[in-house]
Nucleic acid binder design. Structure first.
Lengths: 348, 348
DNA sequence: GCGAGTTCTGCTATCGATACCAGTGATTGA
DNA sequence: TCAATCACTGGTATCGATAGCAGAACTCGC
């Protein structure tokens, strides 16, 4: 039923080792033999079994990428970049969706060890991922963190400039005259939440505003609903904020939805800015954002990882920080007066 | 270095078989022995190796899902549904992004066979996928098609009602008075392109309009750029269409971008409708669409597949057709007069 | 013509786990 | 009491492939 090296060997009248050598393009096989074997392979429809292969060679040429949400366009671009780069280096990539949950993350990391995956690119759930990642280390599986660092864990890392980016976004809001600026963030367990909060505070202090604890709310999930709930809390305040800095695209989308659902307008009533582009190609570019080069996150992470696996790099950890771009659109209220995005664009 | 059943067996003072039985929750192990083994497993930090497992048991509990574009929100939802359902049935899912290319599709299907993946859910590149899928069949790997059928291939299938959906969308346009209605479609190699074209023609004939070949253009890729190029071709016509039916969300987004880039307005100058939601949670709902229950595509496909694998179903192929919902928004021009989406919604 | 060096090929053990069969006690039924 | 059944445990072959070594054939140079 199933075709193995043995069948091919018998058919071609050679040993299994010769077949193996042909399949793996190894040297020391005469052209005549090689051709005979290749013919047998084609004729019998032989496909090598990676399980057997991995068992003896200890190599699977498989990498894993774990992100909290494959539907988030930021991570989608990361995946694309990582996949393409890995493929060019001869590795397959398995995509895992942790849904920002520790349990799923643990499951996936377990699968990765069980399946002898050779390396991992991961945007960790948070600092709590440390134990799980240390287990990886014990098993000798190299990994690269993306987007978020993990407190107390030494590791290769590709991340954005969260402090600086947040500073620029909030500076932009203060320059527009805003002083009551809220922040919708995530659990403090996540490094980007801490870093972006730092940038936010820096920007406020730069205009002599002391951050108001009431204006700091946490989304309880990484999707838009979490952002909407957080925004509702802000809207319920006695003194509403005039602007909101959302920690990422999903939170911002939820926030805008909540503001509109309350019958208010963005940016007329409340301005909104955030990290990351909202949709890869959007119909109506609307949000003012700190755009991060998401695909480069993936590309660089894959490169770092492959270098580790091939043991071309042995030393201590490497950290790559990629700056973002401020893209000013409508949601911050910087450019308005009845002009549509379209006319704005032509006017430029 | 690496912990195997043998190490655990030695440590617990039992045979490797007993360890295996404990790990696999099999019967016929005394509680005392079981506990001793479990302690050894914990102490040594043993993780079973799936390669060894799969080799002897011939089971990997792995499924593959292949879609043309993981960034497309339609497929993202399909993935979610499939992943969750499969997981509940005890299967892991590997996500593959074929980028609508035959070569990548072939690579992934090869990987699937090599890795003894037990079943596949696939939105095929087109009818050309037949050969590749027949290879799967030869290797005894069951699969379920989603979204698209493949001419000349018998297989389980979960798809939307393309003919009916297209009919409803185009009926909607004709009811609004449009008669010069263009269609942006994909290669005729793709079943949904053929089916949606049929619905388009039906709807036109119902108002005594003969389809104009000049108004049928094909996008050369499944992303927004393909849609934009196609739209540019339509805009270059001597007699422009007054409305466009785009085969899917990506094509529609590209079309709208192209229309706006030409200084025209949607829907004032050209109305646009399409299949599939554009973004899962969008800031400004704008496009009139035939929304398909994407997550159900995934859920049902996973169910059908698991039933096949468990051999609970042996008979001939099963076809599931899921109807869509017409969602009327602004892009078709049905509701206008300066009212925003928001006021519209509240008015409803 | 003979040793040294290449190139080519094959044998066998092994990777980590499970399947299959066999064996040991203990329990049950007549 | 004896045979039959059952729960539990272990030995060994095997899955499909590669590693490592060893042997065969072939090429040179002198």
């Amino acid at each position: 039923m199933r075709v193995t090296v043995r069948d091919v060997a018998r058919h071609a009248g050679v040993s299994v080792m010769t077949v193996s050598r042909v399949v793996n393009r190894a040297d020391h096989v005469s052209p005549a033999t090689r051709q005979r074997v290749e013919e047998s392979i084609a004729e019998l429809g032989y496909t090598p079994n990676n399980l057997g292969r991995g068992l003896t060679s200890r190599r699977t040429r498989a990498l894993g990428v774990i992100v909290p949400d494959v539907a988030n366009p930021f991570f989608t671009l990361v995946l694309r970049g990582a996949e393409k780069t890995a493929r060019q280096a001869g590795y397959r990539v398995t995509i895992c969706n942790s849904e920002a949950g520790a349990d799923l993350e643990r499951d996936y990391l377990g699968d990765i060890i069980s399946n002898q995956v050779e390396g991992v690119i991961i945007a960790p759930v948070g600092d709590s991922s440390r134990l799980r990642l240390q287990a990886l280390k014990r098993h000798g599986v190299p990994f690269v963190l993306i987007d978020r660092s993990v407190a107390g864990l030494e590791s290769d890392l590709v991340q954005g400039d969260s402090v600086g980016g947040a500073r620029i976004l909030v500076d932009h809001l203060t320059a527009l005259g805003h002083r009551r600026i809220a922040m919708i963030t995530l659990s403090n367990d996540i490094s980007t939440a801490r870093d972006r909060y730092r940038g936010y505070v820096e920007a406020l202090r730069a205009v002599d505003v002391e951050p108001d604890p009431l204006l700091l709310v946490r989304s309880d999930s990484e999707d838009t609903e979490g952002g909407a709930h957080a925004m509702e809390a802000l809207l319920a305040l006695k003194k509403r904020p005039t602007a909101v800095f959302a920690i990422n695209n999903m939170a911002a989308v939820g926030a805008v939805q909540a503001i509109r659902a309350a019958g208010l307008d963005v940016p007329a009533d409340i301005a909104v800015v955030c990290f990351d582009e909202v949709v890869h190609a959007t119909l109506s570019p609307f949000l003012t954002v700190m755009a991060q080069p998401a695909d480069m996150f993936g590309v660089l992470a894959a490169q770092l990882l492959v270098e580790r696996i091939d043991a071309r790099v042995q030393g201590s950890r490497r950290i790559v920080v990629l700056p973002g771009d401020l893209i000013v659109r409508q949601s911050c209220g910087a450019q308005l007066g009845g002009r549509t995005w379209h006319s704005l664009r032509r006017g430029k």
